[in-house]
Structures are given as C-alpha cells and as structure tokens.
Amino acid sequence: MSLPLEPAVRDDWHVLCRLADLAAHVPAGFRLLAHDVWATRDAKGAVSVRSADGRALPVTLAYGHVFTSLGAPARPLFAIDEVAEPDRRLATCGAVRVRASGLRLVENFLDMAHFPFVHTDILGVEERPEVPRYDTEIRWDVDEVWATNCRFWQPLAAASSRGGQMSEYRYRVASPFNVMLYKTAPPDPARFDVIGLSIRAAEPDLSFAYAFLLLLDDATPATTLIHFQQTIFLQDRIILENQRPRLLPLSPKAETPTRADMSSVAYRRWLKAKGVRFGVFEAAP
C-alpha cells in the first residue's frame, strides 16, 4: 500500500467529473488520488460523493463540474470572479485520459515556449518562438502561483480569431491540480477569456483532464469552441504521454529550465514547499 496522502493534496479540492455526466440516481464510480469514490445526483440536482468506506465527502459544484476532497478543505474552492459576468459563456470540454502525472499536465499548461512546435500555426509559429520575459510570483497569502505580463504572438489564438494577435496571458495555479489562464479575448482585447484546466489525478501517473471555458465570444457555436480546445489538448497529450519520467521531478538538477520556464520553476518550488508528493518523481534512494 502506498503512503498516506499528504495534507496539501488530501485536503485540497479535486475535480471529479462534469456535472452533466451524472445521471440522476445512478451512482458513478471514479478513481481519485488512488482511491475509489462514488458520486450520485438526486432528482433535484444535488450531488453527494462518498468514499469507498462510505464516508460522505465535501462537494462543491462550480464551472460545470463536481469538485470534492478526500480530506477537510481549509478554504472554499478557488473563485473565478468572471463567472458572474452576464456576457460570459461557459463551455465544458469533457475528460481526456492521459498517462502522466497531473503535475506534468499543469506544468505544460503554464508553458508558452511549446506553442510554435506543438500547436504550430494555431497558438504559435516557428518563425516567432521567442518568449519575452514575464513575471512569476508565489502569492503565499492566497497560496497560489501566478505568472503575469506574459506575451506571445499567436496566428489563431481562439476559435473566434480572424487573424494573428499578440496575446497577453496571465496564468494562475490555484492549487496543485487546478490551473487557469486569463487571455486576451479576440472579440474585446481589453478583457480576458478564462480557460480552466482541472485535473483528476487518478493515480500518480494517470490523469483525467477537464477543461472549461469562460468566454466572451457569443457568436461561435459551442461545439466549435470545444473542438478547438480538444484539438489543442490532443496535441499536448502526445507530449505529456512521452515525457520521462512520467512523474514530475522537483529536484532542480533533474531537468534543465531556462528563463522561459520561470513559471515552472516557481510551480515546482511551491509544490516542494507545500510537501506535495502525489505525482512527484522521487529518485531511487
């Protein structure tokens, strides 16, 4: 049997599934942090989640998804203020299974340098691969990691794009397995689209990625938005399944970061400070 879960992971909120995927009165089983849990939705829409030993687990419904915790969360689920704006649309993209640590998925989400090579001619072009300097900080007061003032040239930044743009990004790691970005909205460059990625870490090296969009775009059909996001994620998935090791090393010597990887450096440092072990690569003694 594996080690007991560390508090930083056990007491955190984790996505379980899309709310729409729970049929009324039909319990659905999910693997979460190497544990089995069961979710049920009643006729009124209320969701209950139980552990395999029958314990009732905390539940928060937000952003079209069910979030739960195996422990006792010290704070509510991360808030995204934009969700309250009347002209925002929510789209959920479903789950994609990936044989990799959920931490690798979060780190890839924070990464801009791969756009020209993995998302060629969509989120980047090979002719403009430079990552300008940006700022990162660990905000200990709210226990989050932020990367701000991020800029990248994108030929097709979103499903609604009509041409290239210098996209501005802000990245926010709200908890080890929940990350989001705020990105120039093509219909209104003064405001930001929000793209969230929540990971259900089923096992240390097996993850389910749930993406959701909070967009200003009101013209593009929802299916087109979802397909755009799925295309991007499938391109990422090839990378994620073929990084070695599958788990995320936290030792600064294990891999070779550069200035473009400042967000990943901050993320790893923060994970280490919080004592996160689930999905972390630990070299053989």
Binding site: R18, D21, T92, G94, A95, P221, T223, T224, I226, Q230
Partner: peptide
Amino acid sequence: VPVDVIPGGE
C-alpha cells in the same frame, strides 16, 4: 459541420 460527440453525445 462539427458534431459534439464528446462530451455532448450528439
């Protein structure tokens, strides 16, 4: 014509 197979089940 995009079809929402997953997650929409179209």
